[in-house]
């Protein structure tokens, strides 16, 4: 830890000098994502799962489905929750224990993006209104941290949701008995929101920051678009600040980049738009 500030200083100068020449430390353009790889259905015991590699960042997302009570203010909607674990094997800076503020912020940004676009058709997950609904757990395990966990997690969550299959249920209204059938149906998903994250470094905006870039960035902004051209979440993160023009640039670039990511995601899960 003691040499971290010195290393960060050297790295900062190098990253800043390169940015001045219009270059990034790993040779990418300012609007380029790192190489993305997505594998789905990698965990048989989960109703849905996805493994995502974004550069050297790796995340694993599992979808578990249960039955429970709806929220009292939303009696005719299924329940969805998102949780992120920054497990210590993924980075020397992650520590065991309950989720810290980074894990919570990450989970809540991704959750908002999915929830506010109503990507999962929660109204189709009601068994008995006000009493019994499906509960969808989106659980994210970060396996290797090389920056931009938000976009990797957003891709993983959508890949897992799009390929999840949930068991059919038979509910007997008289006996109140719930039987889980051996037949499966796809989880109903209507939109594909994807977060696009920018780092601001020395006044430059770069998309998909690597860990080296995140270490020296002044600020961060994430914009989540779905395929209808709607924004379902925005989050400025960390310190620093943005000019209005930079926010506008981030919004417009995110619209473009999210549709590129979406095309790639949909082809890798082998389906078209819902």
């Amino acid at each position: 830890m003691s040499d971290a500030p010195v290393m960060a200083g050297i790295m900062r100068d190098r990253i800043l000098n390169l940015l001045k020449e219009g270059k990034r430390i790993d040779g990418r353009g300012f609007e380029d994502y790192r190489d993305v790889e997505i594998k789905t259905n990698v965990i048989e015991k989960a109703e849905g799962s996805a493994w995502v590699r974004l550069g050297e960042t790796r995340v694993l997302v599992g979808i578990k489905v249960d039955v429970g009570e709806p929220f009292p203010d939303l009696p005719d909607r299924g329940v969805m929750t998102t949780n992120v674990e920054l497990v210590p094997l993924a980075s020397p800076t992650f520590e065991p224990g309950p989720p810290d503020e980074n894990a919570i912020e990450l989970a809540r940004i991704v959750d908002r993006g999915i929830r506010e676009s109503q990507a999962v058709e929660l109204e189709k997950l009601v068994i008995v209104p006000g009493k019994l609904v499906r509960v969808i757990f989106i659980d994210v395990h970060v396996l290797d941290h090389d920056g931009n966990l938000i976009d990797a997690t957003g891709l993983g969550a959508m890949a897992a949701l799009l390929t999840a299959r949930i068991p059919k249920l038979e509910y007997n209204g008289e006996t109140g008995e719930l039987v889980r059938l051996d037949e499966y149906e796809p989880l109903p998903v209507r939109h594909v929101p994807l977060p696009v994250t920018f780092a601001k470094i020395g006044g430059n905006m770069v998309v998909d920051p690597s860990l080296d870039e995140e270490r020296v960035m002044e600020s961060r902004i994430t914009v989540t678009f779905d395929e209808t051209g709607h924004v379902s979440a925005v989050q400025k993160g960390e310190g620093g600040s943005f000019k209005l023009e930079e926010v506008m640039y981030a919004v417009d670039t995110a619209m473009r980049k999210s549709s590129e990511l979406r095309e790639m995601l949909l082809s890798s899960v082998d389906r078209g738009l819902p």
Binding site: H230, V231, G240, K243
Partner: peptide
């Protein structure tokens, strides 16, 4: 300088 910006909801680019 914008130091906090969040959005919780569903908006078009122009509305945002």
């Amino acid at each position: 300088d914008i130091t906090l910006l969040q959005m919780d909801g569903y908006l078009t680019r122009d509305e945002l």
